[in-house]
Design a protein around this nucleic acid. Structure first.
Length: 486
RNA sequence: GGCCCCAUGGUCAAGCGGUUAAGACGGCGCCCUCUCACGGCGCAAUCAGGGGUUCGAGUCCCCUUGGGGUCACCA
């Protein structure tokens, strides 16, 4: 039997990393066994419909390289793959249950249900099964009167529902706590719970993978499978992804990851400069650990290594620091071409010419954790002002304003006359240091500071000057020297 | 509140009856070094508490505590 998993998002226009991780695990579980990964759009809630939201889903999956084998855009043998296009399918199943005495029409108004909730202790008890045993006459009268109704499933009043989850093990649940769940809403649309079961069954889904928030509603699903005489799928519930934030009193709180914890939308993270493959890599590790200690994975490696037994049960806190590290590792693992093509937009924005690419590749690749940082790293190339002369003071480099002035005075003509290459520049500085019995740093420090005008630069004096160019470098050094002497 | 689930450093976590309790991120220190990174080396830091079971418990059982989830004509 080949494994079939499905990702069934609602088109809300926003892909939360928690949802994405669920999709990832569904994909990995299927692909590890050479199975099929299905995309199904769950849009039964007309009020929540967002224009263009399905595109966000397609784009996200494409960027994340979670390629589905069946779905609305590519078809398959079990279509349609959009619930709103399957509407006719659900009601007959509900009516079948009514005729078998396993479900019933409920004519209660929303207002009545509302007051039911308000009257109960904490507003927490459910439906009172008021319509569960209406007589045929009462039902007919209500129907004739055109009173809108929902279809509810009759839940067992006692006993225990049990099932086995591949992550959480054996779960048991007292039936008396189960509400007579609504299958079909008054508007004729199926509820998520109902459509989900019908679709999973009719699409031959073998493994249902979802967040652990469904752990306690799974007995309801099973009762539905049971009512139809269908085989239940294998359940794999995933630990939730949590976020850390600070409350009004300045206390640190941990709760289900949401926007208040920072960027949690996949697209938001991408915009901040996180690579899709790094995000995927990181979230794979949130709630799952490989057999060995590998941390950095490509998608193919994840498919190979993924194992359900490595999924943990306890919720995991999303850690931006580690994501940043994973991102940096992916950047460092890039081939020169990959790096350049990712960096090109930023190079263009900084007016960098192609002949600097090799040098920038070398100095930037180990230094950035996100490509979006390139702009500020290269700021010194295009902006230069009268910086604080105290920058020439650096104890560890044995550099001071006095030594700087002396060194720059000597270096200026030497630099002007030397071979303007990285090696040529380095050599002329080192030779000078050697012949004057100075530490390299006494020479390099002031040159770099004078040329860049900032304390921190990617690369050293020679690299800085190569990036700025001969003319501009000499101009800047002259200017700094004048200011030092003034 | 009822019900369900969870519990190893600050974070992700390995461990599945006998270990000096891995590893990674972050932090700190040292080395490398013209700055910042990269790289290398090292340090600090964890079994929530209490009962059992056992020759032996982070590992099994129970209770307590803590955390999370869920109780919609949302998904």
């Amino acid at each position: 039997m080949t494994i079939r998993t499905r990702f069934a998002p609602s088109p809300t226009g926003f892909m939360h990393v928690g949802n994405l991780r669920t999709a990832l695990y569904e994909y990995l579980i299927a692909k590890h066994e050479d199975g099929t990964f299905v995309l199904r759009i769950e849009d039964t809630d007309r009020e929540r419909f967002v224009e263009g939201a399905t595109d966000v889903i397609y784009n996200t999956l494409k960027l994340a390289k979670l390629i589905h084998d069946e779905g609305p855009d590519i078809g398959g043998d079990f279509g349609p793959y959009v619930q709103s296009e399957r509407l006719g399918l659900y009601k007959p199943y509900a009516e079948q249950l009514i005729s078998e005495g396993k479900a019933y029409r409920c004519f209660c108004s929303k207002e009545r249900l509302e007051s039911l909730r308000n009257d109960s202790e904490e507003g927490l008890s459910g439906y009172d099964r008021h319509c569960r045993d209406l007589s045929e006459d009462e039902i007919k009268a209500n129907l004739d009167a055109g009173i809108p109704y929902v279809i509810r499933q009759k839940m067992p009043l006692d006993g225990v529902s049990e099932y086995d989850d591949l992550v959480y093990g054996h779960i048991s649940f007292p039936n008396k706590d189960l509400d007579d769940q609504i299958l079909i809403k008054a508007d004729g649309f199926p509820t998520y719970n109902f459509a989900n079961v019908i679709d999973d069954h009719t699409m031959n889904i073998t493994h249902v993978v979802r967040g652990s928030e469904y752990l306690s509603s799974t007995p309801k699903y099973n009762l539905l499978y049971e009512a139809f005489g269908w085989e239940t799928p294998v359940y794999i519930h995933l630990p939730l992804i949590m976020g850390k934030s600070v409350d009004e009193e300045g206390k640190e709180v941990i709760s289900k990851l949401s926007k208040r914890h920072g960027s949690t939308g996949f697209m938001d993270l991408v915009e901040e400069g996180f690579l899709p493959e790094a995000i995927i890599n990181y979230i794979a590790l949130l709630g799952w650990a490989p057999k060995d200690n590998q941390e950095i994975f490509t998608m193919d490696e994840l498919i190979k290594a993924f194992d359900i037994s490595g999924i943990s049960k306890s919720p995991a806190v999303f850690d931006y620091d580690k994501l940043e590290w994973v991102n940096a590792e992916h950047i460092k693992a890039m081939s020169p071409d990959e790096f350049i093509s990712n960096a090109k937009p930023y190079f263009d924005a900084a007016g960098i010419k192609e002949d600097s690419y090799d040098l920038l590749l070398e100095i930037l690749q180990p230094r950035i954790t996100r490509f979006t940082q390139i702009k500020e790293k290269l700021d010194f190339i295009n902006s230069y002002g009268d910086f604080d002369l105290d920058l020439f003071e650096h104890k560890k480099s044995k550099s001071s304003k006095e030594t700087s002035a002396a060194v720059l005075t000597d270096m200026l003509p030497l630099l002007e006359g030397c071979d303007w290459t990285r090696e040529g520049l380095t050599d002329v500085m080192k030779d000078y240091a050697e012949s004057h019995e100075l530490k390299n740093s006494v020479v390099m420090w002031p040159v770099r500071i004078a040329a860049a005008g900032v304390a921190v630069t990617p690369g050293g004096a020679a690299e800085v000057m190569m990036l700025i160019g001969k003319e501009e470098s000499l101009k800047r050094i002259t200017r700094s020297l004048d200011r030092l002497k003034a």
